[in-house]
Nucleic acid binder design. Structure first.
Length: 216
DNA sequence: CACCAGGCAAGTA
DNA sequence: TACTTGCATGGT
């Protein structure tokens, strides 16, 4: 079976078992972008609390958040952990948005993925996963998001090396899947659900995992 | 109690 | 270049 077909079969199997995932229900591109920074190495439950703090003060709005001091912002996002450095990173994001599009996300949508990605990566505090999350989940453009679960699941199936870097793993998917943002969106979401449930660090083999049928 | 979650950057050698 | 450390809360 070709890798293209295999990847789509993986998707269909996960989708039948777990979908639809209702992944990342943000109300605006900006809210999704903020969430992308807050969730760095952090449980989404904690991120949700921080987002509620912001939402309750009507601060999930770039122009309003821009007026906050870094310390005020840090206190509001405290539940998300790493709150001081994340406040700085959110400020960096706000400066980027101001410079790049005047807080107007529709301007960003007119740029190519490669251009957007390079510019996002130049912001201190935005790495590859955060950049791709913003491009895919906030802007609905087909930039595949990979994470630790993605690597672990595909390595367990001997489809990628365990030391594969972010860029190569992303290319593994993007060179084999159609450029469909809806597919990329749900694919990443389902991989995280599968990873959490059946592919943790300590559990080597999981016969209950729906993807188990593809093991050799 | 230990472990770690939807990472990233900076420091060290 | 290759490895290590700091960042921090809250759920299990």
């Amino acid at each position: 079976m070709s890798n293209e077909t295999l990847l789509l079969n993986f998707f269909d199997t996960m989708s039948a078992k777990l979908g639809p995932s209702n992944w990342w229900p943000g109300e605006s591109p900006f809210e999704v972008s903020v969430g992308a920074i807050l969730t760095q190495n952090t449980n989404w439950n904690n991120v949700h609390k921080a987002l509620l703090n912001l939402k309750n003060k009507d601060l999930l709005n770039p122009r309003k958040m821009f007026l906050l001091s870094e310390n005020e912002l840090a206190e509001l996002i405290r539940p998300a952990g790493y709150f001081r450095i994340k406040a700085k990173r959110l400020k960096n994001l706000l400066h980027f948005l101001n410079d790049e599009c005047g807080f107007n996300y529709s301007v960003l949508k007119n740029k190519t993925i490669d251009e957007l990605r390079a510019k996002l990566l130049s912001v201190n505090g935005i790495g590859p996963e955060t950049a791709d999350s913003i491009i895919l989940y906030a802007l609905n453009k087909p930039s595949f998001v990979v994470d630790a679960y993605t690597k672990r699941i595909f390595n367990r199936h001997s489809l990628v090396h365990e030391d594969i870097d972010y860029h190569d793993l992303r290319e593994f998917f993007m060179s084999r899947l159609p450029e469909d943002p809806g597919l990329y969106n749900e694919y990443h979401a389902l991989l995280v659900l599968v990873g959490k449930k059946w592919c943790r660090k300590k559990t080597p083999l999981c016969p209950e995992c729906p993807l188990h049928i593809y093991l050799d």
